[in-house]
């Protein structure tokens, strides 16, 4: 009989920090090996294999080992209302710089991992940049859609523009004209908003509350002017928050007025 350690050693990623073994169990505070130490030159291209091992340790409890958003913790995070962890096999993503209905770019995925999703998914900034790229490489193996082509970022119209009272006024007019308050009722106190309260559903059919636009830190897709412009133009796919790219044609630069109005809601 041959004994081999192979099958019970599931770390199929190369030891990322071989030096760590040398200092094993040394208890001096300074000797603690950094998990994600500098990347060796061989590791310059992201490896889905390495990403998989990281995914199993850091993401699978929520997103499920197969990526279907059905990990052991997924139900308790969003038992009867959204959001549950994303089904990463579906190819549908909320936080994109690309047009509605298309895949995110690598940088979009990297941004989600780096900043996290306020409220629901922690930031993984502490992983090295390379580790996050390994993860992105692995995420793209989970959905076949990624093999079919590369998505292009939608260029934002030139901006942002200064938040003058006129611009905010124009933004408010757009906000009303585009019916934003049907869902984001609180800001304009419109009775229509109340009609959608508790009735909006996400792709899984779970109740999803529209964002309270006065609470900037709760924005999932960032709250800088460009982040907000990106949200409005590309939409959050899989949620009722649609893309307003077409609605704003032929003057997409008007999005900056909307941005100024939204930002004015939270300024004291």
């Amino acid at each position: 009989m041959r004994l081999s350690l192979e099958p019970i050693w599931p770390f199929n990623r190369p030891p990322r920090n071989p030096g760590a073994l040398a200092v094993a169990l040394s208890l001096t505070l300074t000797a603690f090996p950094a998990f994600s130490a500098d990347v060796s030159p061989i590791e310059r291209t992201p490896s889905a294999q390495t990403g998989k091992a990281l995914y199993e340790q850091a993401c699978a409890f929520c997103h499920g080992i197969g990526g279907q958003g059905d990990g052991p913790d997924a139900f308790y995070l969003g038992p009867y209302s959204a959001p549950r962890p994303r089904d990463l096999t579906s190819g549908e993503y909320k936080f994109r710089s690309t047009p509605s209905g298309s895949l995110p770019t690598d940088d979009d995925l990297l941004r989600t991992l780096t900043v996290g999703i306020p409220g629901y998914m922690p930031s993984f900034q502490s992983l090295s940049d390379m580790d996050r790229r390994h993860l992105v490489a692995y995420l793209k193996t989970l959905s076949p859609a990624f093999q079919e082509g590369k998505a292009q970022s939608l260029p934002l119209p030139p901006g942002p523009i200064p938040a003058t009272p006129e611009s905010i006024q124009q933004g408010r007019a757009l906000y009303v004209a585009l019916d934003c308050m049907t869902c984001h009722s609180e800001q304009v106190n419109s009775p229509e908003g109340l009609l959608t309260q508790g009735k909006l559903k996400d792709r899984r059919g779970l109740t999803l509350h529209p964002r309270d636009l006065t609470n900037l830190t709760s924005y999932k897709n960032g709250h800088s002017p460009s982040d907000i412009a990106r949200t409005i133009l590309t939409g959050l796919d899989g949620s009722p928050m649609a893309s307003y790219l077409e609605a704003l044609e032929p003057h997409p630069e008007q999005v900056w007025h909307l941005v100024n109005y939204i930002l004015s809601l939270s300024s004291p």
Partner: peptide, 12 residues
Amino acid sequence: YQLPGTEDGGST
């Protein structure tokens, strides 16, 4: 008290 799969104690 570090996120699973990370060693984020020094930075987060």
